[in-house]
Design a protein around this nucleic acid. Structure first.
Lengths: 339, 339
DNA sequence: TTGAAAGCGCTAACAT
DNA sequence: ATGTTAGCGCTTTCAA
């Protein structure tokens, strides 16, 4: 393998020189413009191969700020959360298929990072953005939508602005979970909520309340706890619940990180699941079945959420005047042995 | 259209016009060049703020292909593996601190994707790359190193080429695990390896064999199984092991995905841990303690790996002539209740 | 069918 | 201290 084969720094000019044509013609060949003499095309294509020419994405984007640079931004609140990883996988697969590259930005729930990444994404002239904003009033994302940049929100929408969004039926999903618990005979069903300012958390709480009511079970405010969406709040709030004079006999956790935290507490106390306390989590994980006992959970179709979002986004980029739409995907109760 | 005009991004020219100076002067202000009149600077800074000017990263990179565009590439084999997520977190934190943006590319063990992302990264003129190559002979990454692009490898090195690398003591880590098992009295200790062509897998196997020998335990080939690094191979190979005429009394799993798969099989068979079979996994996870029983595991300092790699990379970018180095980080045995 | 040239936004060498 | 300008690699009129 010679050095020339390894270095890959050729550009339009070099190809043009070698072919004895202008860079415009080479550009036309590269971009499959019809107005090229077939013979010229063949000759140039060969040289392109020889020189291992491949277009410089940066120059292309600089030139065509408003055409497609085949670059999408993805803004993720917490890459440690397997839910978002799964969403990302869905996005990646569609992007790969449609030849888009991704700039993935994880802001770890840090609004300063979020702002920085949003600025970078804009500065990089991405063609579009898939984002899970920190909340419905996330002004930074709202402003970006107002610039006209194609954006699709996942998991939560945005207030005061028209934007494509992909959601799941949080309320119904929570209802099905708590209803299942109630029908199984559990009477004191607790709920640990994720960040309460997220619409998804509120909707899940609504579903929880609906199901309690439908099953003629009282809503006890001491059985509802509000955390952030971190592992630690699951640990702590579950402990509080368990130390209640009249502790719950079942626990519905608002998201997977909270579930994991709650499990930690339950195991630490040596409690049996579901004997001492039943557990049902919102968010399934590919290894929920590896838990002991395997966890019953409300599955969000995370991979599909990612796919849909990417498809929506690319469709909007292609056709910016299409009216905004919101997709709502169904959840599924994965029944295993934790309740 | 009007909306787009309102939020139109400003550039050097606009700032220069409004300030009545040349774009060069504005550029000097932006880049903190000393050669600018303090009064001019103040005036320009105000206008920059008013116009919400921020430099266009794409133009900057095109212009300075070899200077710093403050952009790093990260190539990850499997974002579903919590180990890499943790590494990524370490990289992110350093990058954020040093004002580098990241293009994160997950190729999901797909070599075609890997190739595409490598091409994209190069085409995007990243300043440097942190990569976990598919294996030591990964020609695509080797070629990239040969182009002179600053690269740091994590988790595995590269053969035939001089490159910075950040590793952990795989052999020692595995030794400590299996030695612990042996000292606890387990006699038939099985090992499920990850992809055997990875140096890390081989080193862990070496550590396993060392420990067996040191404890005067025979090495039984039927107790060593080779998988890929996926969940499914843990499921399947663990089942094979358990169906042996003389099944193992302890299981050492080569990475976290395999551990999860093995756990799934063990629970499905209704076996007790550690009574029926002890389990010790390579790779700790932040929720290992949420498992039942909490998992004893060899902790790799994944976050630190990411931090070190990012620091190494930035240092190499700053000083390309520094000799290559390899860092080896220590592992830690996290003793819990699964053995 | 092809080429010449402008220009995307920026930096830096050179000039003033 | 400040301005002028070439050029990074590309696409796209406009001309020929």
């Amino acid at each position: 393998m010679t050095i020339e084969n390894v270095y890959k720094i050729s550009n339009l000019k070099k190809v043009a020189e070698k072919a004895g044509v202008s860079i415009a013609t080479v550009s036309r060949v590269v971009n499959n413009s019809p107005n090229v003499n077939p013979e010229t095309r063949i000759k140039i294509e060969k040289i392109i191969k020889d020189l291992k020419y491949s277009p410089n994405r940066v120059a292309k984007r600089l030139r065509n700020r408003n055409a497609s640079g085949n670059l999408l931004g993805v803004l993720i609140p917490d890459i440690q959360n397997p839910f978002y990883v799964e969403v990302l996988r869905g996005i990646e697969d569609i992007a790969y298929k449609k030849k888009y590259a991704l700039i993935v930005c994880n802001f770890s729930q840090d609004e300063n990072k979020e702002k920085m990444y949003l600025d970078i994404l804009q500065s990089e002239s991405v063609d579009g953005l898939i984002a899970a904003p920190t909340h419905e009033h996330d002004q930074k994302v709202i402003n970006l939508v107002k610039t006209g940049l194609p954006i699709v929100c996942v998991d939560r929408g945005l207030v005061d602005v028209d934007v494509d969004v992909v959601l799941v039926e949080n309320r119904k999903g929570a209802y099905s979970a708590v209803d299942y618990l109630a029908k199984k005979g559990y009477r004191r069903i607790a709920y640990i909520s994720g960040i309460p300012k997220l619409p998804s958390s509120r909707d899940r709480e609504l579903g929880y309340r609906d199901a309690l009511e439908a099953n003629k079970l009282p809503v006890c405010s001491e059985l509802i706890r509000y955390g952030d969406s971190r592992h630690e709040s699951g640990v702590k709030l579950c402990a509080e619940l368990l130390e209640l004079p009249d502790p719950p006999d079942a626990l519905f956790t608002g998201n997977n990180l909270i579930t994991l935290g709650a499990l930690e507490t339950i195991h630490k106390k040596g409690l049996k699941i579901p004997g001492d306390i039943a557990v049902l989590g919102f968010d399934d994980m590919y290894w929920s079945i590896s838990l002991n006992p395997p966890l019953t959970a409300v599955r969000q179709p995370a991979y599909e959420i990612g796919k849909c979002a990417a498809e929506q986004l690319i469709s909007r980029i292609t056709n910016p005047d299409r009216p905004t739409s919101s997709m709502v995907l169904k959840t599924e109760l994965m029944i295993r042995n934790s309740c």
